[in-house]
Simulated assay, not measured.
Amino acid sequence: MKHLFATALTTAMLVASGAWADDTILTVTKDGQDIALTMEEIKAMPVTRFDTATQWTEGGAITFTGVSLADFVAHFEVSEGIMGAIAINDYKVEIPVSDAVEGGPIIAYEMNGAAMSRRDKGPLWVVYPFDDNPEYQSETHYSRAIWQLDRVTFD
């Protein structure tokens, strides 16, 4: 009985932390087809890092690491339109593909060098470099900073 409890507890901890790299972490829908991505596949895309403070975190600037939105949409050969970003709880925002620019937002998978758990807004969070560009310090861009991202659609 102890073994079953320990196994269940370990499984729950791995799922909660997003530590299973071989499982689908993000589903992308393009042209009516679903593409399942693992964390390893996302991390294989070009890496982008920046430091920024957010209104949802404490302690000043945090180093976010992930794939730039520009590299992400280019990977899927998308150059215009709207990217639907949907969280684990089905919250959805629309991000114009025109936001996918060099020096723009990223799909972050690390904060300060550590993977993000669901409690820390992870495992994926669209983050804008708020400190680098005053234009990003607006309700419009704050609303696009969706955390617990698990689905993306291209319309």
Rank of each mutant, 00 (worst) to 15 (best):
R119C: 02
A74H: 10
H3P: 00
T27F: 15
Y142C: 08
F130M: 07
T38S: 14
I25L: 15
D31R: 02
I62R: 14
T153M: 02
A44K: 12
M45E: 08
K2D: 12
Q148A: 13
G18L: 10
V28R: 13
I35E: 11
A21E: 12
F154T: 03
R151Y: 01
F72C: 08
T153A: 02
Q33N: 13
M39E: 09
H3N: 07
M39F: 04
M111K: 15
M1Y: 05
V78R: 11
G122P: 11
N112I: 00
D132S: 15
D23L: 12
I42D: 06
R49K: 14
Y136R: 01
V67C: 01
V152M: 15
G32F: 03
N112Q: 04
N89S: 09
F154C: 06
A87C: 05
R119D: 11
M111I: 05
V101R: 07
V47D: 05
E135V: 14
K43T: 00
A53F: 06
T11Y: 03
D120N: 15
I146H: 03
R144N: 07
V15G: 00
F130Q: 06
R118I: 12
T11R: 03
F5Y: 10
E139W: 00
G66R: 08
V93E: 07
T65D: 09
Q148D: 09
D131Y: 12
Q137V: 03
F64H: 06
F130S: 08
Q137N: 09
A61K: 15
T52D: 11
A115K: 06
V152A: 13
M45V: 06
W20A: 09
A114R: 10
K30R: 13
D51H: 06
E94F: 04
A36V: 00
A53K: 11
L124N: 12
A108E: 09
D31K: 10
A85G: 07
T140R: 13
A21Q: 11
T65C: 04
I88P: 00
L9R: 14
V67T: 15
T11K: 02
K121H: 12
I107S: 01
E110S: 10
Q33S: 08
Y136I: 05
I35C: 02
D22F: 00
A114L: 10
L69C: 02
F50K: 03
A6Y: 09
R119I: 05
H75I: 01
F50A: 06
D71C: 05
H75C: 00
